[in-house]
Design a protein around this nucleic acid. Structure first.
Lengths: 351, 351
DNA sequence: TTTCGCGCTGCAATCGATTGCTGAAGGTCA
DNA sequence: TGACCTTCAGCAATCGATTGCAGCGCGAAA
C-alpha cells in the first residue's frame, strides 16, 4: 500500500493541471525546480519576489500543501508537542478525569496559539521504557508530562539526555527536570487552617499520599494541625477513581462519627465525600465542613458549593507551554511554582 | 539545526557501543545491512530467526528505536489518528468544554487500545480550507471530527476524496460521510414528553438551533408539544459559553414568570439554568422542572441532581474509532445512530 | 568590449527506514 | 558429481522536502 487510502487524487473542478502529489509535480507544472518551489512555499533563502508569488498562487490554486512528514524528516522539527499522562497509580484511571481534562484543554489552547499540534498519549507505565519510547521515535519537538505519578526516577533518567521536557506536578528535591505546579504544602496548610479557624478539631485528610503532590498536601495538613492544641487528623488514602473512592469514603464515614472537617486532595474526591455525607444525613457545613483542592469548574456547581484551594490551571498551562518552547529554543529555564489560593464557599461557611 | 535538541547522545552506563542514531549505525554494529535490521525489528520479510533475535536483543540493549518519521514517509502510514474540533459557532468556545472532554477521553482510550496516537487539533474554521489543511499534510491515517458545527459542506467536499473520516454529530440528509450520533429528535421528544407528562405546559427550549444537533432536538421538542393541547413552547438560542449562557438565561427568566418546564440542549446549559433559577428562588422541581441532554458526570452531581437525556458517549467513542479503523482498512461502513435514553432525577421529580 | 559582482535558480546530497529484486550459500536428489 | 531449489541477506531505489554549493545571466564599472 504505497499511497495511503485517500491520497490526493481528487481535484477541484476546472483545475488546470492534475493535482500535484508532491513538490516535484508542482515544480514541473511551474517550470522550475523542486528547490525553487520549496523556497517559494517556505519563504526562505534567496528567491525573487516574482517567482515566489507565482508559485504560491499556483500552489493555492491547485490546492497543494507539502508533506509534513518529509519536511520533518529532513529538518528534524515536527511542529508537534507531546502531552503524556502516566497513569501509574490507577491502572483503570481514565483519561477523562475532570482535572486532567481541564488542564489539557488549557494546554491545547496554548499550543494551538503557537501553531503547533498536540500529540496525546496515555500510558500505563508498566515498564521503565514508557517515556523513552515516546521520546525516541522523534514525532514530537518536546513533551509535557502531566503528573509524575511515581515515575520521577524514570523521568529523571530521560531528562538527562532529553531536554525539551516539562512536568506538571510536585517540585521534588532530586528532580533534574523542569516542573510547574502549585505550592502544595502551602495549599494543604491553607485549607487546614481554614477548617481549624472555623472550629473544626477532628479532621480527616482524603487522598493517597504515595502520589507526590498529595504527600506534600498532607504535609501542609500536618503543619497546620501541629499549631493547634487538641486538633487531631486522620489520613484516608482514597483512590482516584470515583467508584473506588466512594467505597473507601463511605466505609470511613460510617466509623468516624466525631468527624467535623474534611480536607480532600481533589475536588473530585471532595464531591464524592460531599455526596456520601449528604446520603448519611450529615449536614454540610453545619455538622461537617469540607474543602477540596483544584477549584475546578465543578466546585462552583455543587450544592452547597465547594470550598477549595485554587490552582490556577490556566496560568499553569501557560507556564508549561512557555517553558517548553523556551527549552526547544535552547534557553535555560527554571521551574515555576504557583501560589495556591483559598476559595471559601458554602461547604465550609454557610451563606 | 540538523539534529533537534536532545538527540540521542546519551547512553546507558556500560553500553558496549555508542548509542546508534539510526538503523544504519545499528547495522554496522551488528555486522549486517540496514535492510536486515529493518526486517528484524519489523518482523517482516525473510529473515532467519537467529539473526532476528540477535538484532532485536542488540537494539534493546543499546536502547535503539527506529524513527517513526522515516517509516511514515516511506510507508505512508503514520500510526496516528487526528481528532479535530471545529469551533464554528463560538469563537471563544473552549476546548475544555466538559462534553467535548468526556467524549475525547473515551476516544483517546479507544485509540490507545489500538496502539495509535492521537493528534488533537482545535480549529476555528474561518476559511473553507481548515479541513483539507489538516488532511493533506499527511500526518494522520484518519480523522475524527467532533461536531459538524455549521461546516457540513466543507466536510462533504473533503469527504469526496478523503475517505478515512468519521464525524460525531447529527445525521444530516445530504451528508456523504459517516457519522455517529444520537437520535437527537427522539431524544428531544423523550425529554419534552417527560416534562409534559409531569404536567408542565409552559415550556422553554434552551439551545442554539443553528447547530445541527440542536435543531434536531428542537424538532423533537416541537413534535412532543404538538401532541398536547394547551402546551406552549418558547425557544431561547443560548450560547455555548457559560458566561454568555448565564446572561441569556437570566434575562429570559426574569421575563418568563409563567415558565414551568425547561429542556436544555446540554447539561452545561441546564446547570447554568438551574443556578439561575435557584438564584431567583424558584424551586426546582416544584416551580420549574428542568431536564438536560448528554447525561454527563456533572448531571449526577448537582443538587437537585439533573434529569437528562443520556447519550452513551462511551459507545459512541467506540463506534467512531471502530468505523474509522474499518475505513482505514478499506471497508465500506455505515453511519451509526445511538438510542438516547431518558434519565430521571431530582430536577424533574422530587425524591 | 571585457571583467567583476550579485542575485537567482538548479543540482544533488541528505534525512532514516522500507522493500523488490538479485544472488550467494547450502541442501537435496538423481 | 552436477543440476536445481530454497533460504536468507544485501544492493539500491524510493518516500518528499530541504539546503549547501555551483553556476548562469545580466548589469555595471573600467
Amino acid at each position: 500500500m504505497p499511497k495511503s487510502a485517500g491520497g490526493k487524487s481528487g481535484a477541484k473542478t476546472g483545475a488546470r493541471a492534475a493535482r500535484p502529489n508532491n513538490i516535484q509535480d508542482l515544480a514541473r507544472i511551474a517550470g522550475v525546480s523542486a528547490a525553487t518551489v520549496s523556497r517559494a512555499l517556505a519563504g526562505t533563502g534567496n528567491i525573487s519576489a516574482t517567482t515566489r508569488e507565482r508559485i504560491r498562487a499556483l500552489a493555492s490554486e491547485l490546492d497543494f500543501r507539502p508533506s509534513n512528514m518529509a519536511r520533518s524528516l529532513r529538518t528534524g522539527r515536527t511542529g508537534t508537542v507531546g502531552v503524556i499522562v502516566p497513569l501509574g497509580h490507577e491502572k483503570s484511571q481514565h483519561i477523562s478525569d475532570p482535572f486532567f481534562m481541564t488542564l489539557l484543554g488549557y494546554i491545547a489552547d496554548r499550543i494551538a496559539d503557537r501553531g503547533y499540534d498536540l500529540l496525546l498519549s496515555k500510558v500505563v507505565p508498566h515498564d521503565p521504557e514508557w517515556l523513552s519510547r515516546q521520546v525516541d521515535t522523534g514525532r514530537v519537538d518536546g513533551m509535557i508530562i502531566i503528573g509524575q505519578s511515581n515515575q520521577s526516577d524514570v523521568i529523571n533518567s530521560v531528562a538527562r539526555f532529553y531536554n525539551p521536557l516539562v512536568v506538571w506536578g510536585a517540585a521534588l528535591p532530586d528532580q533534574i527536570y523542569c516542573s510547574v505546579g502549585s505550592d502544595n504544602r502551602l495549599g494543604g496548610k491553607l485549607a487546614t487552617e481554614h477548617l481549624l479557624s472555623l472550629g473544626c478539631r477532628k479532621l480527616a485528610f482524603f487522598g493517597d499520599p504515595s502520589v507526590p503532590e498529595v504527600e506534600q498536601r498532607l504535609n501542609g495538613f500536618r503543619d497546620a494541625l501541629r499549631g493547634v492544641e487538641g486538633a487531631v487528623g486522620a489520613t484516608l488514602p482514597v483512590h482516584f477513581t470515583p467508584e473506588q473512592a466512594l467505597e473507601d469514603i463511605a466505609g470511613f464515614l460510617d466509623l468516624a462519627d466525631k468527624l467535623d472537617g474534611i480536607f480532600a486532595t481533589s475536588d473530585t474526591i471532595a464531591i464524592t465525600a460531599l455526596q456520601a455525607l449528604l446520603d448519611r444525613r450529615r449536614a454540610v457545613p453545619q455538622d461537617v465542613k469540607i474543602i477540596g483542592f483544584d477549584d475546578l469548574d465543578l466546585a462552583r456547581r455543587t450544592v452547597p458549593a465547594l470550598s477549595s484551594v485554587r490552582q490556577d490551571l490556566e496560568a499553569g498551562a501557560e507556564a508549561l507551554v512557555d517553558i517548553l518552547f523556551r527549552k526547544i529554543a535552547g534557553e535555560e529555564v527554571e521551574s515555576v511554582m504557583l501560589q495556591p489560593q483559598l476559595v471559601v464557599r458554602g461547604s465550609t461557611v454557610s451563606d
